[in-house]
Amino acid sequence: MADLQLVAEGLGQAFGRTRLFSALDLQVPSGDVLLVRGPNGSGKSTLLRILSGFMRPQEGQVAVRWQGKECPPRKLFHRIGMCTPEMRLYEELTGMETMAFFSKLRGVDRDEKTLQELLRSVGLETSRHRWVKVYSSGMKQRLKLLLATFHEPPILYLDEPGSNLDDEGMDVVGRIIEAQKARGVVILATNDTREFAYGTQELFLGQ
């Protein structure tokens, strides 16, 4: 397991007059799953964007502590896994081409057989040569989950990972989170009661 900790101090964010959160302190060590809950518009996705480094917070700061060193999450994009509704797939590529493309970018040396096995693990092996465009929304979600985790990142950000997934797909989410707990940190933003049990820490926004 990676010896790391995701730390946020005094985080505050507002859009216009709407304050989403303020003076938020977080410490998420390896092996923990931070469950972020809250009603729509409470700032769950915004918090994930801030914690992952995609967005600078108006107040406070975020850092990843690893082996005594501190680093802003923005510098660790290549070590992050992320699956959010805002991230989409290349519709004109096949599932297999998508996997091959991202494995080259991530520097994860995987041959076609291994990629095929990975696609099988999320139930997409038989549709691997079909364009993503013709995938159902559940199939796209499975591929996104696979892309977020196949490079075994120490930090994984999941925003509504169970959206559009059937029971079998929810099992995939469960397996992914359990595997990630053994590898590092999980930040899970969700309102799906089926996913609440994965959390080892809980943060409720919008109070």
Partner: peptide, 16 residues
């Protein structure tokens, strides 16, 4: 427009 940029930002170096 197709929201594929965040995935590319995460996976690839900016210079690449």
């Amino acid at each position: 427009e197709t929201s594929t940029a965040p995935g590319l930002q995460l996976a690839a170096r900016s210079s690449a």
